[in-house]
Design a protein around this nucleic acid. Sequence first.
DNA 1: TTTAATGATGACCAGGTGGTCATCATCCAT
DNA 2: ATGGATGATGACCACCTGGTCATCATTAAA
Lengths: 213, 213
Amino acid sequence: MEAKKTFFNLPEEKQKRVLETALEEFSEKGYQGASINLIVSRLGIAKGSIYQYFNNKKSLFLYIFDYVVELVRKRLKRVKEETKEAPTFERIRRSLLAGVDFIEHHPSIYRGYLKMMFEREVPFRQELLRKIRLFSSDYLTSLLMEGRDRGEIRKDVDLETMVFLLDAVMDRFLQAYAVSYLDSGLHLHQATRPEIEKRIGELVGVLQQGIGR
Amino acid sequence: MEAKKTFFNLPEEKQKRVLETALEEFSEKGYQGASINLIVSRLGIAKGSIYQYFNNKKSLFLYIFDYVVELVRKRLKRVKEETKEAPTFERIRRSLLAGVDFIEHHPSIYRGYLKMMFEREVPFRQELLRKIRLFSSDYLTSLLMEGRDRGEIRKDVDLETMVFLLDAVMDRFLQAYAVSYLDSGLHLHQATRPEIEKRIGELVGVLQQGIGR
DNA sequence: TTTAATGATGACCAGGTGGTCATCATCCAT
DNA sequence: ATGGATGATGACCACCTGGTCATCATTAAA
């Protein structure tokens, strides 16, 4: 029960406006830091109104969260199908690139995700993050398994270990692109597209062959 | 000018108690979320007193930050020297293990670091994080360079790329150990020591040889 | 004993928070 | 025209925040 009936009676444009405005605020300030007062003032509606749409701050947040999750889920699914025929490491490259594109189009969303990752008061944070991680994990697992079947991926190593490594590197890459001062050396933050592609190429290459010998 | 003279006139034990209590609060709640009221109440001193030690919340935070940075810096330096003679990938293994130990001994500190990473209102966040990242980056760079000289590390790949990869994986490993629901698959959070060591071994192995072929 | 210095105190301030609710405006069916 | 339903409103509430400052207690120097 995340939104009240009143909210759904609203014209769709208004629903969307409310949603986007709140999303912006939550992404920018995190859960705790987001201000209902600011949201309503920015929407130009009365304080009481928002409480006629949602029971409280928590409900509003959860509703927005679901909205975003659906957005990401669709995106991920599309990339996976689009690259179905490509070799595994090409698929990884394309996935990273898709991540970059997503951040480009929805900059506040990714920053919001990073914020709630370590915030305390986020309602159901544990469950929510598990949900997200599962996306990523499932995605990479199936990608690597298909790669194994094709003989492109080592079979003598724990699959979970490889997934962990991939997940870590890809996530960090996107973080570095999104927030600056997280890339140690490579200057990813707001780098140009060719630079990004070059970096991705190098990184995937090292993932493939290792750094040893 | 982070602390007032009054603070330094205090008996050392009291200084330390103030410091540790504030550190605990900042680590647990982040900068914005930390409550001066709670700190003084937990210390059993008057509100006004803490403002006779520090000019404001920001000063208190920065003072604590320096305190922590020094702590970490020493630790890192020691590990580096202790493993001076070991092969590179053994050094990496030991470094990760040292990280796990550090979190074990100072659980709130690492969580605090994670929190401020994406919080907005942290004063000088950018500079502070850059400082930290530079530690890690410098450390890994010199480690890999020495490894190159010994012929243990590839020479045909950009050094920064490898540093980035190492940094990402190691940091994520510690994150997963510290906060749960960040490990996709491997269950690092509060795993037993032998499990941790096994995972580290596998991970470093994959780093060394890659996941391809 | 008087004076000066220094640390401790907590009532108080302005401003922000999430949330409530009686009242009003509008529309539609009777 | 009337009554009912539904959405919009904003003054108001209790509570919390970081920060101030006049006052007090204690100590040491004169």
